[in-house]
């Protein structure tokens, strides 16, 4: 069942409530288990007893319906971007994007590839970048703690930005996805 209306503006929330909820959100980040590039290799050790991301309340969910965070783990092919947009829009608000590796920042070592996009921020709103090629698990945990700090302060508003500037993002997306066959509004 698709919605065929533009996304409505998120309404104002009671501030105290929102603060408590932000604490809860920061301490229970659920990640969509979806790896797009080689950086996904270094995500796996995060489950293990050595790095153990469950102690921050971070858990993997197999479906976007239940997740909060989408990790773009490295280079993104145009074909994958289509699926990623689909996944991102099915995640329920509020949602955050963590981008790993230099590929998502400026193309990295695939800057001249015919099939991988260079600047991810043009197509999807990124909340936290993690540097490195590829980032070590420690760096990813550091990125997550930055995300948690941003959420606690109420600064992780990428999803609102996406809704408000939907036209800009859609234009960019349609420019590189030449056979656009997704529903235009899909919430």
């Amino acid at each position: 069942m698709y919605c065929n209306q533009r996304p409505e503006k998120p309404g104002n929330k009671i501030e105290v409530f929102e603060k408590i909820t932000n604490m809860a959100r920061a301490n229970s980040l659920w990640v969509t288990a979806y790896g797009t590039g080689c950086g996904a290799i270094e995500l796996r050790p995060l489950h293990t007893s050595r790095f153990d991301m469950e102690r921050f309340g971070i858990a993997m969910r197999p479906t976007p319906r239940q997740a909060d965070v989408l990790i773009i783990s490295g280079y993104l092919a145009t074909k994958t971007l289509k699926r990623v947009i689909r996944v991102y829009e099915q995640i329920q608000d509020p949602k955050y994007i963590v981008a790993l590796g230099s590929c998502t920042i400026n193309g990295g070592m695939y800057f001249d590839s015919y099939n991988t996009l260079n600047v991810l921020d043009k197509y999807l709103p990124v909340d936290v970048y993690v540097m490195g090629c590829m980032p070590r698990p420690e760096a990813i945990i550091d990125g997550f703690s930055l995300l948690m700090r941003k959420i606690k302060d109420g600064r992780a508003q990428g999803w609102k930005h996406y809704k408000e500037n939907l036209d800009y993002y859609r234009e960019n997306q349609k420019k590189i996805i030449t056979d656009w066959d997704l529903p235009d509004y899909n919430w």
Binding site: I20, D52, E54, G57, Q90, Q92, D93
Partner: peptide, 28 residues
């Protein structure tokens, strides 16, 4: 988690999860 040799989440983690989920948008 301790049996696996990990730290494991907080004891109150389930409360946090339930509250967070309750305050998420529901549109599907």
């Amino acid at each position: 988690a301790r049996i696996h040799g990990r730290m494991g989440p907080r004891v109150t983690q389930n409360f946090i999860d339930v509250w967070k989920l309750f305050r998420k948008k529901t549109s599907i």
